[in-house]
Design a protein around this nucleic acid. Sequence first.
DNA 1: ATGAAAGCGCTAACAT
DNA 2: ATGTTAGCGCTTTCAT
Lengths: 354, 354
Amino acid sequence: MPVIRRQAAASSLPQVKDVARLARVSTATVSRVLSGIGGVSENLVLRVRRAAERLNYAPNRAARSLRVRRAQSIGIIVPDIENPFFTSVMCGADGVLQDAGYTMIVANLDENPEREQVHLNTIRGEGVAGVIFTPTIAQAADYRTLQDCGVPLVAVSRRPHNLNVDFVGVTNEDGSKEAVEHLIALGHRRIAFVGGAAKVSSTQDRLAGYRRAMAEAGFDADSDLILFGDLRQSGGYEAMLRILELPQQPTAIFSGTNFTTLGLLRAIHEKGIRIPEEMAMVGFDDMPWAGSLQPPLTSVAQPTNEIGRVAAQLLLARLRDPKRPLEEVTLPTTLIVRASCGATRHLDMVRSRK
Amino acid sequence: MPVIRRQAAASSLPQVKDVARLARVSTATVSRVLSGIGGVSENLVLRVRRAAERLNYAPNRAARSLRVRRAQSIGIIVPDIENPFFTSVMCGADGVLQDAGYTMIVANLDENPEREQVHLNTIRGEGVAGVIFTPTIAQAADYRTLQDCGVPLVAVSRRPHNLNVDFVGVTNEDGSKEAVEHLIALGHRRIAFVGGAAKVSSTQDRLAGYRRAMAEAGFDADSDLILFGDLRQSGGYEAMLRILELPQQPTAIFSGTNFTTLGLLRAIHEKGIRIPEEMAMVGFDDMPWAGSLQPPLTSVAQPTNEIGRVAAQLLLARLRDPKRPLEEVTLPTTLIVRASCGATRHLDMVRSRK
DNA sequence: ATGAAAGCGCTAACAT
DNA sequence: ATGTTAGCGCTTTCAT
């Protein structure tokens, strides 16, 4: 015998069947019109469109996701949502994704790797159509679980280990080399490298650029002068304190990432060290306010918005054609010369410190 | 007669029924255990938990959303995802929401009000459990559509017009007054106010604080000295150019929002004006690098993370109890004195410019 | 070109 | 305390 059920409260939202009734067509036709499949007479298309508009119809995305077994959303996993590099990347991706009708589910790891697993499970449960992420420390297996569900992944900024994914990066090594060569051209010989997280590919590539520049100039890359912080300001701050305790000080510092640079600056200001006279400086990552820093920062700028845009485009391309070959895009960096490197001063002044 | 249907490809994801089978219970029991309703024997709870873990089960959130007619996600609508104020708020909200099992759907208006309507429709379609937003220009009706669907709203930073929602703000007026009084105490009489977007409540409150400080000190608030930019650096930059064309220059500027401050600074640096000697400055909004700016910026700091946290908590509270009275939380600002206001110099030097 | 209806995976009402 | 099963709103197959 049939079970008697309480009727759920009618949704205040219009549904396909409301649109269908108003347009005097079937729900199938409404769906066909609104998803733009085609194969519907012009007449009905018009009626359906009008009805949908009249009712201010917004399709229930959960129902759609359930039916097509894939959500119209993509997950963005960022190590730190407060880092301007990542927000700028997100902003670039957002524009592209929004135009394609995707929503953006943002997972902030907040430099807290335990969160990664939780987030990945949630994202798997969301049935997102794809994921844009920046690899943190150890995870390949977790991301592979997503891949096994057929969710395409695009890595940004850091090259993931043991994971076949599309990738968007920049000329980390050449950009760093150019920056260090610039310092060398200004007369510096003892140049420190302060990287962000030591193990990520971007840091290693930037270190490689530093080493190449030093080697080609015939200078020692004194291992005392190679330090690592993390991705917060504190890492740079502490690195600077360590540098100040060195028996033989560098005359210049190349900083491998934005927050490290800010941390270094903070320590330098606290100690009253003058830039660039006592310490010259170039930092990887430009920031919208880099020109208003004390002093204006010479930096290696990444095309951050473009990185996000390309990442989103790669994802959409793969959604369209899952079989396409893996793609790896490397975008160019730009050395922006401001005052912190000392390029605007006489070389003698820079060198006088030795 | 029954219609023959093509079987959809079996999902590679485990489902409730897989967990149920493995645990030798019904799907209802699995659901009860995993959603923590209670009323299940300890024995079965254990078996279900174990089975779910073994299968690495992640519930299909779309199916759940469809069934309970509400997603486990909340929408965050921000005017500009690249503005550190909003990212910091998002970060605070994220922590709370994540712990409560919600995902965060981020909609970036990118200062583009047309996008707002599109985003609101999408968010309505997502069936989010709630929305945290910062009102932009004109919208009340659009947001009301959401409210009519029973989606609770929390406004952040700017008070929305004609909309009954929970609200998290800061002591804009008192914070600004304190900042301007600080400048007055340093001997300034001609103090300019450069606000962000003129029409939003936060700008107006900050202007009110400026006016009160000036009035109480018995100074004119010369209307020439009250300017507005927008929420990008360019607004501040252009405002500074206008200030420089004034017949009688101010000796100090109080800037109403972070990007405006950076824009002002950029113009000031370009013109080679010395801060604070030729122009003293205090800005609303602290930034993690405010101490590394040129010169270190005296600012009115908002507890940005806390704002986000409180917003999320208000939302969760209302989800628990939709009937609770509307709440309005005002968090305190803090004046952080650094060098840009000239507090570290002699008064005579500041005043000497007149 | 259009419509009827099954079924996506979950939850909760109802039955036991 | 546990199980059975309808149905959330959509898309899509199949039938016409």
